[in-house]
Amino acid sequence: MIPAGFDYVRAGSSEEAVALLAEYGDDAKLLAGGMSLLPLMKLRLAVPAVLVDVGRVEDLSYVRDGGDHVAIGALTCHRDLETSELLAAECGVLRSVAAEVGDNQVRHRGTIGGSVAHGDPASDLPAVLLALDATFVAQGPAGSRDIASDAFFEGFLETALAPDELLTEIRVPKTGAGGFAYEKFNRRAQDWAIVGALVTRVGDATNVALVNMGTTPLRARGVEAALVSGATASDAAALAADGTEPSGDLNASPEYREHLARVLVRRAIEAVSG
C-alpha cells in the first residue's frame, strides 16, 4: 500500500518546523519517525496534504540531567531511551518501558515525542509519562509553554497540542533506578498491549496508570487513593477498572479488559511492594 500523494517539506530546526506549520495550517502533519503516522497514511486513515519532516532536527534528540528532573528531547528514539545510562539511574521505569515498545526496528525509528503526540491509548510511553506526572514542552508561534501530563491526553488520538505547535521536550521526575513494575498483556511479542498496568513510585506516592482501558491513557486514581489509606494490593486492585470505558475488539471484550486491568494492577502492585 502506498500512501495518497502529499507534499513533503523538511524542517532543519524547531523554529523552521513551527513556521512551516503556521504556513500550511491544518493541511500539515508533522513526521518524526513515522512509526504511527505512515501506517495510518497507508491505510488512508490519515490523508495530510503536507508532511513537515522534523526527523532531522538533531538538537531535539537528547537525554539530559535537568537538576530535579530528566529532560528528554522529543525526537529521542526509543532505542536511545533504552540504552541511556542517565535514564537507567534516574528514571529506570521510562528506560524499561521504552525497551518494551514494538520491536528493535520500530525502536530505531520511533520517537518519544511522536508516540506522545500521536496520543494512542494503547501505546506504552503515554501511560508511563502520565504515571510520572511528566511535563510536556510545546513550542508554537508565540513561544514555549508547559503542559501537565494530566491535561495533555484529551481523547482518542487527540492531545492538548495545537495544530501549530511542536512538542520539543518531555520532563520526567527523578524516581531512581527501581520502584516500578509494568505488566503488559499481549498475544504476540511485538504487539500493542491488550491491557497494560504500570505502577511506579514517585517520591512518597505510588502512581498507577492503565494502557488501553479507554480513549486515552488513564490514571487509576481509585487504586492510588486506596493504597494511601492502607488497602492491600488485592483490595486496591479490585478498583482498577472503576470508571473506565474500555473498547471491545477482536482481541478482547470490554469485560475481559476490565478483568485484565484488575489482575495486572494487582500483579504490578505486588511486584513493586515485594
Partner: peptide
C-alpha cells in the same frame, strides 16, 4: 540497515 540500524523499509519513505 539504515546507517547500520535495522529498519522496516515498508514503513519508511525513500525521502527519509
Amino acid at each position: 540497515l539504515a546507517d547500520g540500524e535495522s529498519v522496516k523499509s515498508c514503513t519508511m519513505l525513500a525521502v527519509q
